[in-house]
Deep mutational scan, measured.
Amino acid sequence: EEERTFTNEEEARKAKKEAEKRGLRVTVTKDGTTWRVRIG
């Protein structure tokens, strides 16, 4: 499991799409101005 943080919503969405392409489970949460993308 890996967690990545982004300040840019577009980049967070891109990371989510890429992980889904690899067949991984992805959770995206917004924490104030930060987007957290949890993969795995």
Rank of each mutant, 00 (worst) to 15 (best):
R22I: 07
D31L: 08
R22E: 06
R36Q: 06
R13W: 15
E9G: 06
V37K: 00
N8H: 06
G32T: 03
R4E: 07
V28A: 01
R13H: 12
N8R: 05
T7V: 08
E1C: 12
E1L: 13
D31P: 00
K17M: 14
G23C: 08
K14E: 13
E10M: 11
T34D: 07
E1Y: 15
V28W: 04
T5I: 14
T29F: 13
R36I: 15
T7K: 07
A15T: 05
A19M: 12
L24A: 04
G23Q: 02
T27E: 08
R25E: 08
R4L: 15
A12L: 04
A19V: 03
A15K: 03
L24W: 07
K16W: 14
V26S: 04
V37H: 01
A15D: 02
E2A: 09
A12Y: 05
K17W: 14
V28H: 00
W35G: 01
V26T: 03
T34L: 15
R13V: 13
T7L: 09
K14G: 07
K30A: 07
K17T: 12
R22L: 12
E10W: 14
N8Q: 05
R36D: 02
T5E: 08
R25K: 13
F6Y: 13
V28L: 14
A12P: 00
A19K: 02
T34V: 15
K16C: 14
T5H: 09
K16L: 10
T33A: 12
E1S: 10
A19S: 04
I39R: 02
T5P: 02
V26P: 01
V28C: 07
T27R: 06
I39Y: 08
R36Y: 14
K17S: 13
G23F: 03
L24D: 03
W35K: 01
K16P: 00
A12E: 00
N8I: 06
K30R: 11
G40R: 10
F6G: 00
I39V: 08
R4Y: 15
K21T: 10
V26H: 00
W35V: 03
N8Y: 04
N8S: 13
R25P: 08
R4P: 03
A15Y: 15
G32S: 03
G32K: 04
A12W: 04
E1V: 14
R38E: 09
K21F: 09
L24F: 12
R38T: 14
K17D: 14
K17V: 13
A15Q: 03
E20I: 07
R13N: 14
K17I: 14
R36K: 12
G40E: 15
E11L: 05
T34G: 08
R13G: 06
G40S: 14
T33W: 06
V37E: 02
E11K: 04
